[in-house]
């Protein structure tokens, strides 16, 4: 692939990748790091892209996997720190999980922040469905294409995510009382 073509791809999709990463990690610095990794993977794997799906769908898929890997490695590092230095893991975990999404507007800050914290506690696939359907505003068909699932499976994941979210929010409220 020529550098000119690749830079065109970066220009077209960098905003999409950056914002999707922000939805997962809420930290601009981490989102920037993930965006760089995503395009590095795109560059290395572009020969393997068969064109069965749209380039946009393919890049979405790479971004989601990179974000989930990033979160896993971050969690692993926190546990490693805990075992190595005997520090309080909950303290360091909180310092990571607290970044407030920079795209939240002031009037919804508290409500949305709690909701995002609850979303972060969902299983990976349920979280991804919420992010893609509600934050990225994609259709069920588009989400199904990205996740290689049927639209029915996406709908069922969404319903389960809503149920779990409800549970998490209720538990948090009770805990606060």
């Amino acid at each position: 692939m020529s550098p000119a073509n690749f830079s065109e791809i970066v220009k077209t999709y960098q905003k999409q990748v950056y914002n999707l990463a922000l939805h997962y990690v809420h930290s601009p610095a981490d989102a920037e790091e993930i965006t760089q990794d995503v395009f590095l993977k795109v560059y290395e794997k572009i020969d393997q892209f068969e064109g069965n799906s749209q380039l946009k769908t393919w890049i979405y898929r790479i971004t989601i996997n990179t974000c989930l890997d990033f979160l896993k490695s971050k969690r692993f590092k926190l546990f490693k720190t805990f075992f190595q230095q005997q520090q309080d893991v909950s303290e360091s975990h909180n310092s990571y999980s607290t970044p407030i999404h920079p795209g939240i507007q002031l009037e919804h800050k508290e409500g949305l922040n709690n909701l995002l914290k609850a979303i972060n506690r969902l299983p990976e696939n349920q979280k991804t469905v919420i992010v893609l359907l509600k934050m990225e505003q994609l259709s069920q068909q588009e989400v199904a294409n990205i996740l290689n699932l049927s639209t029915k499976a996406v709908e069922s994941l969404f319903q389960r995510a809503k149920k779990n979210l409800q549970q998490i929010l209720t538990n948090t409220k009770e805990h606060e009382k």
Partner: peptide, 17 residues
């Protein structure tokens, strides 16, 4: 969940490219 629409999409930092 509909409130999630109100989250603004941000422009990536200019040096990212």
């Amino acid at each position: 969940l509909d409130l999630l629409n109100s989250i603004q999409k941000l422009d990536p930092p200019p040096q990212l490219f």
